[in-house]
Computed example of a mutant assay.
Amino acid sequence: MAFDQTNILDRPGESLDHDETDGLISSEKVDGTAVYNRQGERLGSIHHLMVGKRDGRVRYAVMNFGGILGIGERYHPLPWDVLTYDTDMGGYSVDLDKERLEGAPSFERGQEPAYDRVYAERIGGFYGRI
């Protein structure tokens, strides 16, 4: 059965019938999803995704971490492939503890990095993805 793309964009105000299937999820549902470490400790939540313009692949899930009411909050780009969705927790899990996360590549609100090759290598190196 082929996916019917007709009229999806011609229906302003209408949403798709489903925002989640067995293998796909809308980015709207990913934003705000909790991120836990393997011990079940909540680390933060997904703030937004970074998607490759040319290939459409999700490269990073940017997780917010720390701070109180947005003050002192940091954003950590996690390579998408280090996250695993855990249905029991209702969120993503990552093999990372808070102490290690504090040393991970991150940025503050309003100071988002360029995501150039150097920064991508820094992220990949930290998470063992080079």
Rank of each mutant, 00 (worst) to 15 (best):
M1D: 05
D4M: 08
D4K: 04
T6W: 03
N7C: 07
L9K: 03
D10H: 05
R11L: 13
R11M: 13
R11G: 00
P12R: 04
G13V: 03
G13A: 10
G13P: 02
S15V: 06
D17E: 14
D17H: 05
H18N: 11
D19P: 00
E20I: 05
T21I: 09
D22L: 14
D22G: 13
D22R: 09
S27N: 05
V30G: 09
D31K: 05
D31S: 07
G32R: 01
T33D: 10
A34F: 10
N37H: 05
R38Q: 10
R38C: 05
Q39S: 15
G40C: 10
G40R: 07
G40L: 12
R42G: 02
R42Q: 15
L43A: 13
G44Q: 06
S45Q: 11
S45M: 06
S45C: 08
I46V: 15
H47Q: 10
H47E: 14
H48W: 02
H48S: 15
H48Q: 12
L49G: 04
L49R: 07
L49Q: 06
V51N: 09
K53C: 08
R54W: 01
D55R: 10
D55M: 05
R57T: 08
R57V: 14
R57Q: 11
R57H: 01
V58F: 01
V58I: 15
R59T: 03
R59L: 14
Y60E: 04
Y60V: 04
Y60S: 02
A61P: 00
N64E: 14
N64V: 00
F65D: 14
G66K: 00
G67F: 04
G67I: 09
I68D: 12
G70L: 12
I71T: 12
G72T: 02
E73Q: 15
Y75D: 01
H76Y: 12
P77A: 13
L78N: 04
W80F: 13
D81C: 06
D81L: 11
V82T: 15
L83D: 05
L83I: 04
T84G: 09
Y85E: 06
M89Q: 15
M89F: 07
G90T: 01
Y92L: 13
Y92H: 11
S93Q: 14
S93A: 14
D95M: 07
L96T: 02
D97E: 10
K98G: 10
K98H: 06
R100E: 11
R100C: 00
L101V: 04
L101D: 08
E102R: 06
E102M: 08
G103N: 14
E108Y: 12
G110L: 05
Y115S: 05
V118I: 10
Y119F: 15
Y119H: 11
Y119G: 10
R122S: 07
R122I: 00
R122G: 00
I123T: 04
G124N: 14
F126M: 02
Y127C: 08
G128L: 05
R129A: 13
I130E: 12
